[in-house]
Simulated assay, not measured.
Amino acid sequence: MKADTSWIIWALLSAGFAALTAIFAKVGIQNVNSDFATFIRTLVIIGVLAVILAATGNWQSPTSISGRTYVFLILSGLATGASWICYFRALQLGDAARVAPIDKMSVLLVAVFAVVFLGERLSAINWLGVTLIAGGTVLVALKA
Score class of each variant (00 low, 15 high):
F88E: 06
N58H: 12
F39D: 13
T69N: 03
V112P: 04
S34C: 07
L91R: 05
V116Y: 13
V138M: 13
A19V: 07
N31F: 07
S6L: 15
S83D: 13
F72T: 11
W127Y: 11
I9E: 06
A144V: 10
A100T: 12
Q60P: 00
G28E: 00
A25I: 01
F24Y: 04
Q92A: 12
D35P: 03
T131D: 10
D103S: 11
A50I: 06
A111C: 14
G57P: 02
L118Q: 14
V140Q: 13
A18C: 07
N31K: 09
I8M: 10
W59T: 03
M1V: 10
Q60V: 09
G136A: 11
A18E: 05
R68V: 08
A18Q: 10
I46H: 00
W7M: 03
T21W: 10
G28H: 00
N58C: 03
P101N: 09
L78N: 06
A15H: 06
S106H: 11
A82N: 07
G119Q: 14
I74L: 15
G28M: 01
L20Y: 04
L73P: 03
L91T: 03
L109Y: 13
M1A: 11
K2N: 12
V107R: 01
A79I: 15
A82F: 13
S76R: 06
N33Y: 08
T131M: 14
S123Q: 07
T131V: 15
A15W: 07
I85H: 10
G47M: 06
L75N: 09
P62I: 02
V51L: 13
A3V: 12
A15K: 05
A100P: 01
F17N: 00
I102Q: 09
I85G: 04
A111S: 15
I46K: 02
I133A: 11
W59I: 03
L78Q: 04
V116D: 11
P62A: 00
L142W: 10
V140R: 11
A25P: 00
G47S: 09
S34Q: 12
S83N: 15
G129W: 02
A25D: 02
L53M: 08
M105Q: 08
L91I: 07
A141T: 06
G67R: 10
L78D: 06
L13G: 15
I40Y: 11
A50D: 01
I45E: 06
T131F: 15
K104W: 01
A134V: 08
I46Y: 05
L73Q: 13
L13M: 15
T42A: 14
I8T: 05
Q92C: 03
F36D: 12
R68P: 00
D4V: 09
P62G: 01
A90G: 10
L108N: 09
I23W: 06
M105C: 14
V107S: 02
W7C: 05
A50Q: 01
G57T: 04
T56P: 00
